[in-house]
Write a protein that binds this DNA or RNA. Structure first.
Lengths: 343, 343
DNA sequence: TTGAAAGCGTTACCAT
DNA sequence: ATGGTAACGCTTTCAA
């Protein structure tokens, strides 16, 4: 069923039917009802491509997933973000398209998106420090919003981010408040912008409490379970092991837990752990594992907010880039009590 | 840059330029070269929507992710599948589109896909026993391939599946060969078709070895870490606890490991575990954890094969549905040695 | 070997 | 309030 046959059946012009269906005011109520009823009856939907061609809009949002970012789609967080964004986009009639490419080809994909008119805008995930994709997208003229920010980029761009610095600062302060003095940071790769912000928050809390940061307690690498495991083993074997650990990812936190257990210690009693981006039930289920979390629901919320911003951005292309900072909820489960004393 | 301006600049008709770019034979070599050079120079790409409108093809593959399937996008396996499929699709010029909806609306999405002509075909993930989406898609007339199979559906449909029954049978046989007699099965929800096949393989191996299956050792539910944890705790507390566990998912396996450790036992020594769909480094890294896996690369391969089949299916819509069975690689890490003797 | 023109299914402008 | 028609950018048929 297309517009033409629907119009013929109704004895109306395509124009009128189109107008009725798109909510134009100049259609009489009687006609509108007739049209809507017929459209419903035939399950009519305007053809996406024809509509896109006529309006100059694809009604599609693109997202490029470089294959190297192995943990991007593996990372549960990504699913939450997509869930939030997808929901909001669909309310506005947008579809989401994913393209997975070898890293080197990422810029080619953006150029092609643009040349083909395949998408109206893109979401930029996992920004690095001085991320060159930002000038590229600006130059190409493809609307975008960054999920996160990129230190060192001076040209204007829109972003939606959770306040990583503040949440790490709060969490670290909380640990200090409990009496911890040896607090480790197991962070993501510091080429990733968020990792630097998290470290800054961690350091700010230490500085405020006049605790000298110990480089041996600050680890940074790609956030795998192995990384969390090996670093934790190493640190727990030190002369002055940490009594608490700030973890930048729930994947790494899996390894942290394993290392703690294998060291014959108990998480929450001997070593406190606060994990960002984490409220997965499988970390909270163990009633015996008090763990503190900045919630995944924050990430879902970020998806929703970003989608909303991107829709606005598409609709008002000349407006200056608008950005939004979100505060991550810091869910504090159960207190670990005072920091363990070691002799 | 569009076809018209490109043609004008070359002093050729749109027809000729289009033909040159699409590899039609009737274009002279000289002209073709000139056209290709100019197209490259201007980074010309045909507009997706215009091309789609003219050809009647969207060059997009849809995938619906019901929101209830929480672990579908969280599940690392899904990322592997998508990686494989996406790669193959892009070679044929197809994009992938994902729509995330509340479960109840899934059929509406398929109807809308079809009515809008938004996609050329869809991939059906996670088929249930007697999955009603199959008759629905057949009725709608939307080409599709099922990733997996659906017992009880009699009408023809195309599928690509890994041989779940055989891999579970092999793995169980392997455990029996090592001397295990009390082998537990921690399975997915048995409304899921694959779960039934896995159980069938497990039971077949037991039967072959004349071991009576113990219902108390067969657990089935949604594959969360909590599920793996709680069931393992329960079973290890039995009078005759299992000496080996077959796990249907790596997420559940995380809980299984935790339960084993918390029971003061050692995985691989006191309890052997074989996990399907799993070769994540964070399960293999612990040198002290011998674990046996049917590999994730099988799933990636399945994505590639399915994509290829779907492209074929789109191109020859009248051909009878073609299906492909893949054998999962069963990577055997290190032997657990003979089954532990309990007194 | 090349080109003119129709057609794909919409929307949007200009009439009426 | 409704309709005719051009336009969107491409492919494809028919002619030359």
């Amino acid at each position: 069923m297309n517009l033409k046959t629907l119009a013929e059946e109704l004895g109306l012009s395509q124009t009128t039917v189109s107008r009725a269906l798109n909510g134009y005011p100049e259609v009489s109520e009687a006609t509108r009802r007739r049209v809507e009823e017929a459209a419903r009856r035939h399950n009519y939907r305007p053809n996406s491509r024809a509509k896109g061609l006529a309006t100059g809009r694809a009604m599609v949002i693109g997202q490029v997933i470089p294959t190297s970012v192995q943990h991007e789609m593996v990372n549960p967080i990504f699913g939450d973000f997509v869930a939030g964004a997808s929901l909001t986009f669909s309310r506005f009639g947008y579809d989401m398209m994913f393209t997975r490419v070898p890293d080197a080809d990422e810029s080619a994909v953006y150029r092609e998106y643009r040349a083909r008119g395949a998408v109206d805008a893109v979401i930029l995930q996992g920004p690095l420090v001085e991320d060159q994709r930002i000038p590229l997208l600006n130059q190409i003229g493809l609307p975008f919003i960054v999920h996160g920010r990129s230190t060192g980029i001076t040209e204007p761009y829109a972003w939606v981010d959770v306040n990583n610095k503040r949440s790490f600062q709060h969490a670290t302060e909380f640990l200090i408040h409990l009496g911890h003095r040896r607090i480790a940071l197991i962070n993501g790769l510091e080429t990733m912008d968020f990792a630097q912000r998290r470290r800054a928050g961690y350091l700010a809390a230490l500085a405020e409490a006049a605790i000298a940061p110990d480089p041996a307690l600050m680890r940074s690498d790609e956030m795998t379970e192995h990384f969390g495991y090996s670093q934790t083993r190493q640190m727990l074997a030190m002369d002055q092991p940490p009594t608490a650990i700030m973890a930048s990812s729930m994947i790494a936190a899996l390894g942290i837990r394993r290392a703690i257990e294998e060291s014959g210690l108990t998480m929450g009693r001997d070593v406190s752990v606060i994990t960002h981006d984490d409220d997965l039930s499988y970390l909270k289920n163990g009633q015996d594992v008090p763990i503190f979390t900045a919630t995944r629901s924050s990430v879902r919320k970020a998806g929703e907010v970003l989608a909303q911003c991107l829709v606005d951005r598409i609709n008002t292309p000349d407006a200056p880039p608008q950005s939004r900072m979100l505060e991550a909820e810091l869910l504090v489960g159960r207190s670990t009590g005072p920091a363990p004393q070691r002799t």
